[in-house]
């Protein structure tokens, strides 16, 4: 999962770099273990943009279903974000399982 050639992680990295560029910040390497807030400096608006960009590439937005559930999904790192996309929709997007 943490291999650099992982297509999902690559898509996430591309999206995050675009968010950084669009907001006038320097695009930098994105690693799975990085904290979205502390290491990459993403705020909730940046994350919201990342998720829309990813929905366009991956065709799904796991947070739309999760937001309707009883609990918010904790997404702190790049790997957390990838995990949210990895769970198959058929398994139910209940946030408690994450």
């Amino acid at each position: 999962m943490k291999s650099p050639s992982d297509p999902l992680l690559e898509a996430i990295a591309v999206a995050i770099r675009q968010v950084l560029r669009d907001t006038g910040r320097e695009a930098r390497p994105v690693e799975p273990g990085m904290s979205l807030a502390a290491d990459l400096g993403l705020d909730s608006l940046d994350l919201a943009q990342t998720i829309v960009l990813l929905e366009r590439v991956l065709g799904s937005d796991p947070f739309r279903a999760a937001a309707a559930g009883p609990e918010r999904v904790p997404v702190r790192t790049v790997a957390d974000l990838a995990a949210a996309y990895r769970r198959p929709a058929a398994a139910g997007n209940s946030p408690t399982e994450i």
Partner: peptide, 10 residues
């Protein structure tokens, strides 16, 4: 406005 689960709209 584009709907967003995180911020309501973008």
């Amino acid at each position: 406005g584009m709907p967003s689960a995180i911020t309501g709209e973008l």
